[in-house]
């Protein structure tokens, strides 16, 4: 799941300043799940922006609300023809993908991001989100006990812990577990410590060259260096 975080209102206020009629566009998938851009956040942001306008003493903006099932698929964006017909800009609360998809769909309209797309991750519990995947294109979780050191170790190192770990926690945060301590413990439980003893060679950081593209059909143009 893509995890995002609401942008600061001050920042949003600056980006929308030049425009009058603004469509606040939510997305019903990932950003709904992480509470950053679903229908509830759209409504709350709408209220907050109106209040900000009022506070600034210039009620010059008009806001419209709409939440799509998913912003990152062109077919779901068909309704924008009508919804965005009379607006000056779209403030998308979708992730970076959503913003771009909407921008592609609306060639003549400014599409502004309302959230910061943070990472690929999961909920640890209500209201707590953790990164889990770097989308590196070369998954080797089989070698690290199903725990990704690329994302869960602050340095993303591959051959064991650095010397900064303390009490099983990472050197950058006493709240975060050291991924390598977790990997060691899990492998020990599974009696597979020899996996960790094996040398892990330098990674291929360009498993899919950028711009990345994945093909599942024939006769299509590949991405990057293809």
């Amino acid at each position: 799941m893509i995890v995002a975080e609401a942008k600061n209102l001050t920042e949003i206020g600056k980006t929308i300043a030049p425009y009058g009629r603004i469509l606040v566009l939510g997305c019903g998938t990932c950003v709904t799940v992480c509470g950053a851009g679903g229908e509830r956040e759209v409504a709350l942001l709408h209220d907050a922006l109106r209040l900000m306008d009022m506070k600034a003493g210039n009620g010059k903006h008009v806001f419209l609300e709409c939440t799509l099932k998913r912003q990152c698929d062109p077919e779901f964006l068909d309704v924008l023809e009508e919804k965005a017909a009379n607006v000056d800009a779209v403030l998308s609360l979708g992730c970076g993908i959503g913003v771009q998809a909407v921008a592609e769909r609306l060639p003549d309209l400014p599409v502004l991001p309302g959230v910061n797309t943070s990472f690929l991750g999961m909920a640890k519990e209500w209201g707590v989100w953790d990164e889990r995947c770097a989308a590196c294109g070369d998954c080797r979780l089989d070698e690290t006990a199903g725990i990704c050191p690329i994302t869960r170790c602050t340095k993303g190192i591959l051959n064991g812990p650095c010397a900064g770990t303390k009490n099983g926690r990472c050197e950058v945060s006493k709240e975060m577990d050291c991924a390598w301590v977790l990997i060691y413990q899990r492998l020990e439980n599974m009696r597979q410590l020899e996996t960790m003893r094996r040398y892990y060679p330098p990674r291929n950081f360009r498993a899919i060259p950028r711009p990345k593209r994945v093909l599942s059909k024939i006769n299509a143009a590949g991405g990057g260096h293809e």
Partner: peptide, 13 residues
């Protein structure tokens, strides 16, 4: 149901 993103907030709260 069509809006439900299965986020599990309800289950958790």
């Amino acid at each position: 149901q069509d809006k439900c993103a299965s986020c599990l907030n309800c289950v958790r709260v």
